[in-house]
């Protein structure tokens, strides 16, 4: 059932409200034209083949809301001769279903793996939509603990943000197999292997990247943000270290967690690294001279304001988190 229909059902007693909501709702895209497919409409998600057999759907630079069904992160899939690996599943069951439809438009092969790059809701809430193919769910060794700890909170928040109807079917699906730090894992899709690498604390404490052997393209998850301001839920110093290590990797291109469908490496992380340095160099002296969090929030990072989408929504939180991290240096 489409969300529009369920809204009608809920509001049939109030014709005026129905009219208003109808005029506010985005128009459903034509299912026959994937390029036109909007996140809230039915039908397969629009995907772009960024390298042979590598398909990416580009998320919107917005926060999760009714209109976008949690379509705010880059998600997609890789097709081998034996099957498919899905990498991140979007911010709702509804979105996961539409990604599944996009897979089916490309191939009839089964989804063998569903890989989550980290615990954040915009990357994991479509997981359940792939259960029918019986895939192995893969993630960082610390992902199950974080999913268990935050799952209910995230689900409750999703319902507040997109409504009960919009969140219908969404649940936490934890990994059935995990990847330990320092022990990369290879999975075979037929004709290509994917290398899953678990990283130390960076964007979160459960970041995982996926390297495709055939094309040399790296799914970076939220270790790389472009256009949309990065958000910090781990350690800024740790994140810098992980990026430095990734500098040396043999990568043709990266697929950032937020930003364009793909980008050249290591140029893709230039803006992000510059922002991190602005935060660290701005906050460290404030911490050293005994300044306060509000003083840092009021001043640090302003030179970056025009460089990022959603800057004002996330920079204050980033400053707060960096501040308490640098206090213990």
């Amino acid at each position: 059932m489409s969300p529009l229909v369920s809204l009608l059902k809920n509001f049939t007693g109030f014709p005026v409200l129905v009219l208003l909501i109808l005029t506010m709702a985005p128009r459903p895209a034509l299912p026959s034209d994937p390029a036109q497919a909007s996140s809230a409409g039915p039908g397969p998600l629009a995907v772009e083949e960024v390298a042979a057999g590598v398909f990416v759907h580009t998320g919107l630079h917005q926060d999760t809301a009714r209109e976008n069904h949690g379509d705010i992160a880059n998600i997609g899939f890789v097709v081998g001769t034996g099957g498919v690996a899905v990498i991140d599943t979007g911010g709702s069951y509804h979105l996961g279903q539409r990604l599944y439809d996009a897979v089916r438009r490309v191939t009839e092969l089964p989804v063998l793996y569903v890989i989550n790059t980290h615990v954040h809701p915009d990357h994991i809430f479509g997981n359940a939509a792939f259960a029918g193919d019986g895939p192995e769910y893969m993630g960082h060794v610390k992902l199950p603990r974080q999913m268990a700890a935050r799952g209910d909170f995230y689900l409750g928040r999703l319902k507040e943000l997109i409504g009960e109807a919009g969140a219908e079917g969404t649940k936490i699906v934890p990994p059935t197999r995990t990847v330990a730090i320092g022990e990369p894992l290879e999975i075979d899709l037929g004709g290509r292997t994917l290398t899953l690498t678990a990283h130390a604390v960076a964007h979160t404490n459960n970041d995982l990247t996926v390297l495709d052997s055939k094309t040399g393209i790296l799914w970076a998850g939220d270790l790389v943000f472009m256009e949309r301001i990065p958000s910090l839920d781990g350690s800024i110093l740790g994140w810098k270290k992980v990026l430095e290590r990734m500098h040396g990797m043999k990568i043709t291109k990266v697929i950032p967690g937020h930003g364009p469908a793909s980008a050249s490496w290591p140029a893709a992380q230039d803006a992000q690294s510059r922002y991190f340095d602005v935060l660290i160099e701005g906050i460290r002296p404030i911490v050293q001279r005994g300044g306060t969090i509000p003083a840092a929030v009021a001043t640090v990072g302003k030179s970056e304001a025009d460089q990022w989408v959603l800057f004002d929504d996330y920079n204050p939180g980033n400053v707060t988190n960096v501040f308490v991290e640098l206090e213990w240096e």
Partner: peptide
């Protein structure tokens, strides 16, 4: 993407207000 979820009620509340104004 997390801080958005920690402060998510703020966004939700803004949306609610906007909707409330229209309905009102």
């Amino acid at each position: 993407m997390l801080s958005g979820w920690r402060q998510a009620l703020i966004t939700g509340e803004a949306a609610f207000k906007a909707a409330a104004v229209v309905l009102l």
